[in-house]
Design a binder for these strands. Structure first.
Length: 337
DNA sequence: AAAACGGGGGG
DNA sequence: CCCCCAGTTTT
């Protein structure tokens, strides 16, 4: 806490005591860098100043505002939680941590963050920063991605918490992890903790914290078919999986490799779709947590649109009124001259 | 307990 | 190219 008084890391939600705005900021910041989430927080705080504004908005509009931030279930959960607060709590954000945890999208970390920041309640936050700081200072070599590891770290975090100033302490340890006790190249030489940091004394800072799992990535080849008549094309709303609630073009996934133009021709013929021209307009790749996506965008001039379930006609002039995943946005930017 | 879930920045 | 980020929900 003393260290935190020597640094400056201003953020609009620090010093904020309105639990609704704290909640909003915490949801936006889940697995998201402060610099990345900041503009979204400012937009949401201005557009949805109260929980009622959030509860009453159409979900599609909310998704549009969330566009580009990722982890879209956060937006859907935010909406559902807002409605829960209005219906079950008369629009007043709950104060009891168990009630806070019942809200969609709020887990252990976010509940502790809201309870401590808004009400100065004595609950220690345990996020990526805290895992790192505690694992190094106390030389904890339990993996942080196992149940046993999380349980132990939580007990250490709770014990280390300053009971008198929980909000200040939680804020300080996260600032410390984010700016000083960095994942790589931490500033150990000038660290105020280096004399009591066991990992530093043992020179094993770089291996901490320890993770047990490594994740497998699936490679997917997606062929987006952009059917075009004059200024119109066909888009559909994704109904499941990763990009639920966002829009995309009709697509076909190919197993081994991305399509060549012959494969597109073959597909259109098989589906009895008449076409004038086929042109590969854009190619891009995107890395998600569990999959690597190779995408090709095929511009296909047609005489009449094929009948595909759940698609709608839209003009390129209005196409940006709908929310899209990043890879579709990249394509749309590339064709917008 | 493990997998799924985005996007961006930095080394 | 890999790691990590103010984590939570679903399987």
């Amino acid at each position: 806490m003393h260290w935190s008084e020597t640094i400056s890391r201003p953020m609009p939600w620090k010093e904020e005591k309105n639990p609704y705005l704290i909640w909003l900021s915490e949801i936006i910041l889940q697995q998201t860098r402060v610099e990345q989430g900041l503009p979204y927080y400012l937009k949401f705080a201005a557009k949805y100043p109260t929980v009622f504004d959030l509860a009453n908005v159409e979900e599609s509009a909310l998704m549009k505002d969330w566009e580009g931030l990722g982890y879209y279930s956060r937006a859907r959960n935010l909406h559902e939680a807002a409605k829960m607060i209005v219906e079950n709590h008369q629009g007043i954000f709950p104060k009891d941590i168990n009630e806070i945890k019942k809200l969609k999208g709020i887990g252990d970390y976010t509940a502790a963050a809201i309870a401590s920041f808004a009400y100065n309640a004595p609950f220690a936050v345990l996020d990526g920063n805290v895992f790192r700081v505690l694992s190094r200072v106390f030389n904890i070599e339990l993996p942080i991605d196992t149940t046993i590891g999380k349980k132990y770290f939580l007990s250490v975090a709770q014990e280390a918490l300053d009971q008198q100033f929980p909000a200040k302490y939680n804020q300080a340890i996260m600032d410390f992890g984010a700016t000083h006790c960095l994942p790589s190249q931490p500033k150990c030489q000038e660290c105020v903790m280096n004399e009591i940091c066991i990992a530093y004394q043992k020179d094993i800072v770089s291996i901490l914290p320890i993770k047990s799992k490594k994740l497998l990535k699936k490679v997917r080849n997606i062929n987006y078919l952009v059917y075009v008549i004059d200024d119109q094309t066909l888009i559909s709303e994704t109904t499941q999986s990763v990009w639920k609630g966002l829009f995309q073009f009709p697509m076909v996934e190919s197993d081994n490799a991305a399509w060549e133009i012959e494969d597109v021709q073959h597909f259109l013929t098989k589906e009895k779709i008449g076409y004038l021209t086929i042109k590969k307009e854009f190619a891009d790749t995107q890395n998600l947590t569990h999959q690597r996506i190779n995408a090709n965008f095929w511009n296909i001039e047609v005489i009449e649109f094929p009948r595909i379930e759940n698609t709608k006609k839209v003009s390129f002039k209005n196409i940006n009124n709908f929310p899209y995943p990043k890879i579709i946005k990249n394509y749309l930017s590339s064709i917008h001259k």
